[in-house]
Computed example of a mutant assay.
Amino acid sequence: MSCMNQMSSSDFILLGLLICSKNSLVFFSSVLLIFILIVTENTLLILLIHGDSQLCSPMYFLLKHLSFMDIFHISRIVPKIITNFLSGSRTISFAGCGFQIFLSLTLLGGKCLFLAVMPYNCYVAICHPLLYAKLMSDKVSVMMAAEFLLVVTLNSIVHTAHALHFPFCHCRTIDHFCEVPAMLKLSCVNTFRYEQGACVSSTIFLLIPYIMISASYVQILLIVFQTKSSEARKKFFSTCSFHMVVVVIYYGPFIFTYLGTKSYHTPGEDKFLAVFYTIPTPTLNPAIYSFRNKDVLKAMKTCSEVIFIIKGRKDA
């Protein structure tokens, strides 16, 4: 009867990340605190980069866009979780689900491309310093960001339209939140041909950037080993090892979720992997890419000193 009632409506039922139990309030509080932490630290990073003239290099330009995408990505999920938890309703409209899919594909795809360019930026700076001003100029960085956003937006429109076009003859119950793999599991038609096309798209946005990241770090590693400075090697390993942790945490679950047919993994696995590439990376990115950076720490110190001086003048 529940399935029949759902089939008479265009709304979907989000089971969500919160399961009704005595521990749900604890989990809800944890999700809310993580959401506040992600928004706060990424907003702080954006303000620092925007307000400090010393942080105007292409690296920080990319970091600023990465922080914007992290904020929007976590904001497409957590507010809906909070609303559903407080209201007791688990429904999401057809248009709302489509908007979640569109934002998911746009932000996750864009993040894949930006994460791939950042190691390339380091590679050019270390391996070809004389060409850096030409290959990674402000104009090139802006054009690159605009092209990335255009490509991922067009890709998202196509896949969102296809995912919502399939007839849904099963219960309209989604295990976590609206994504293409979850929508394919609800379809009662053979989606194998579409999944093949989606696999090609996933290869472009996942495997190729991952290969670029690996190749960039290998080239940097070869240059670092040729130097006699132990300090340079120590700095490389302390920085790049954390970078690779973020890449593996982000790309690994993403590749498993989007590469392969819907029969390869269960809804429980999809939920776990979705949480894995949604929450840890936006939390870790500012700390790993920026707050361990001397320039950012210097900008934070300068900003705090200015605030202290202004506060002291007001008190006086």
Rank of each mutant, 00 (worst) to 15 (best):
M4P: 07
N5V: 10
N5F: 09
Q6F: 11
M7A: 13
S8N: 10
S10T: 13
S10G: 02
D11L: 07
L15H: 14
L17P: 04
L17S: 13
L18W: 03
I19L: 09
S21L: 07
S29C: 06
S30V: 07
V31A: 08
I34F: 08
F35P: 05
F35W: 05
I38G: 08
I46E: 01
H50I: 04
G51R: 13
G51W: 03
C56G: 10
M59K: 11
M59H: 06
Y60V: 02
K64P: 00
H65K: 06
L66M: 15
S67I: 00
D70N: 15
I71S: 02
R76H: 12
P79F: 01
P79H: 01
I82R: 05
T83F: 13
L86P: 02
L86V: 13
S87D: 11
S89H: 13
T91G: 04
T91D: 09
I92C: 09
I92W: 02
A95P: 00
G96S: 10
G96I: 06
C97R: 03
Q100C: 15
S104C: 15
S104Q: 14
S104G: 15
G109E: 10
G110S: 14
A116K: 01
V117M: 11
Y120L: 12
A125R: 05
A125W: 05
I126P: 00
H128T: 05
L131Y: 03
L131A: 11
A133W: 00
K134N: 08
M136I: 02
M136S: 03
D138F: 00
K139S: 07
V140L: 01
V140A: 09
V142I: 10
M143A: 07
F148P: 04
L149M: 13
L149V: 09
L154R: 06
L154K: 04
N155W: 12
S156A: 15
I157M: 06
H159L: 11
H159G: 09
A161M: 12
H162Y: 12
L164F: 14
H165T: 05
C169N: 09
C171R: 03
T173K: 15
I174R: 00
F177Q: 10
F177A: 11
P181Q: 05
K185D: 11
K185R: 15
S187L: 11
N190P: 07
A198Y: 10
A198C: 07
C199H: 09
S201A: 14
F205Y: 14
L207K: 05
I213W: 01
V218K: 10
I223R: 11
I223Y: 04
I223F: 02
I223A: 08
K228C: 00
S230A: 00
K235N: 08
K235V: 02
T239P: 02
C240M: 04
F242H: 06
M244C: 12
M244A: 05
V245S: 07
V246E: 12
V248N: 07
I249F: 05
G252L: 07
F254C: 10
I255H: 02
T257N: 01
Y258M: 00
G260K: 01
K262P: 01
Y264R: 11
Y264C: 09
P267R: 14
G268M: 13
G268A: 06
D270Q: 15
K271R: 15
K271L: 14
L273S: 05
A274W: 00
Y277V: 03
P286N: 02
I288S: 04
F291H: 11
L297F: 05
A299E: 00
I307G: 08
I310M: 14
K311L: 08
